[in-house]
């Protein structure tokens, strides 16, 4: 029984390298970043094979290591660009009768990404739009998207409160959507 879940590092590469790489390409802005992260994931998996409990599948285990590495990537990026904060003005009137209602020129137009969606193109636009988020917001955003950490862990990472977490996600989603619309239409 104990041997049933034993790991076979020689098999990992064969079985999961392309899978992990595809996963990384989906979440990271460049081919190079994805290659680095996959290499780090394998090295870390080789080192910590002994910690594997066998209560999840090898694949799940490897993906969770990969996710942590992806978060690390954005964390490092955030540190590099700490000062590079671009401020985003919310697309709502901030006073007057229409306070907190959409500024018409910036309000979501009617479009759908389903019509003839070219995955590559849309994905590239998305990655570009993500790159415009303030670095700290990007870390928060990615951690929520990867769904690997609890809200408390995300908050601890960037020293914010849970209420603040939703404010950041709200701003980030407004900003990303607006950017995608500009590029896509």
């Amino acid at each position: 029984m104990a041997h049933q879940n034993r790991l076979a590092p020689e098999k990992w590469l064969e079985n999961y390298a392309d899978y992990l790489y595809t996963y990384a390409r989906l979440k990271l802005p460049s081919k190079e970043a994805a290659e680095d992260v996959v290499q780090e994931t394998f090295l870390s998996a080789f080192k910590s094979a002994g910690n594997f409990k066998g209560n999840s599948s090898e694949k799940t285990w490897l993906v969770s290591i990969l996710k942590r590495r992806i978060i690390d990537y954005y964390r490092k990026e955030a540190r590099k660009h700490e000062r590079n904060m671009t401020s985003y003005q919310l697309p709502f009137y901030d006073n007057g009768d229409y306070q907190n209602h959409w500024i018409e020129q910036r309000a979501p137009k009617s479009w759908s990404a389903d019509e003839g969606l070219q995955f590559d193109e849309f994905h590239q636009i998305l990655q570009y739009c993500l790159s415009l988020l303030p670095p700290k917001h990007k870390v928060v955003f990615i951690m929520k998207i990867l769904d690997e950490c609890t809200n408390e862990e995300v908050c601890e990472e960037v020293s914010i409160s849970v209420a603040n977490l939703w404010t950041i996600m709200h701003r980030a989603r407004l900003q990303v959507r607006e950017c995608v619309e500009k590029k896509w239409l």
Binding site: Y19, T22, Y23, L26, K27, A107, P108, K109, S110, W111, S112, A113, D114, F119, F122, H123, L126, I145, D147, R173, L174, V176, R177, V180, E181
Partner: peptide
């Protein structure tokens, strides 16, 4: 309503698995 539809789509692409 548009915001909801589009943000849901964006979320789907961001959470895309292999």
């Amino acid at each position: 309503y548009n915001f909801k539809v589009q943000s849901t789509k964006i979320d789907e692409i961001l959470k895309m698995t292999p």
